Simulated assay, not measured.
Amino acid sequence: MISRVYRATLFALYQLCIVVGITMMPLAIAARQAGFTLPIHRLLENVEDAYTAAQP
């Protein structure tokens, strides 16, 4: 039961990270033009790795 809740929570977090990444796209483009990048891709990769590791 707990593993099911854990996987569901990770899935929701993964989906939330995708939505945040999409909504922050204009900010990321402006930041890249200013000379630096936002590490959103690292957050998304870490959450995705945790989600896939939790799969049975």
Score class of each variant (00 low, 15 high):
28 A>M: 09
29 I>C: 03
29 I>K: 01
7 R>G: 13
54 A>E: 04
44 L>G: 00
17 C>G: 09
7 R>K: 09
38 L>W: 12
53 A>G: 09
49 D>A: 12
1 M>P: 02
5 V>D: 02
21 G>T: 02
47 V>E: 01
7 R>D: 11
43 L>D: 02
7 R>T: 14
56 P>R: 05
52 T>L: 14
16 L>M: 15
34 A>L: 09
38 L>D: 07
40 I>R: 01
18 I>K: 02
17 C>D: 09
54 A>S: 08
24 M>H: 10
53 A>P: 07
8 A>V: 13
27 L>M: 14
21 G>V: 01
25 M>P: 00
18 I>C: 05
27 L>E: 08
19 V>K: 05
23 T>H: 08
20 V>P: 03
13 L>C: 08
29 I>N: 00
49 D>L: 13
44 L>V: 10
21 G>C: 06
28 A>I: 09
29 I>H: 00
50 A>M: 10
29 I>Q: 01
50 A>Y: 01
21 G>I: 02
29 I>D: 01
37 T>L: 11
27 L>N: 07
38 L>R: 07
24 M>W: 15
16 L>C: 12
37 T>C: 08
55 Q>S: 04
28 A>T: 06
18 I>V: 13
23 T>A: 11
2 I>D: 07
11 F>D: 03
2 I>E: 07
4 R>H: 12
39 P>V: 15
36 F>G: 00
9 T>S: 09
26 P>T: 04
7 R>W: 12
34 A>K: 03
3 S>D: 07
49 D>K: 12
30 A>L: 12
47 V>C: 04
18 I>T: 07
50 A>L: 11
11 F>V: 07
31 A>L: 06
40 I>C: 01
20 V>A: 06
16 L>P: 04
37 T>P: 01
48 E>M: 10
49 D>C: 09
44 L>Y: 02
10 L>G: 01
23 T>S: 06
45 E>A: 15
41 H>Y: 14
24 M>R: 10
28 A>G: 03
28 A>W: 01
55 Q>E: 08
54 A>D: 04
29 I>W: 05
40 I>W: 08
7 R>F: 14
19 V>C: 06
3 S>G: 07
32 R>H: 10
23 T>L: 15
6 Y>N: 05
15 Q>D: 06
36 F>N: 00
44 L>M: 08
24 M>G: 03
1 M>T: 08
42 R>Q: 11
33 Q>S: 05
53 A>L: 14
47 V>M: 06
8 A>I: 13
14 Y>Q: 07
44 L>D: 00
13 L>H: 05
24 M>Q: 09
41 H>V: 15
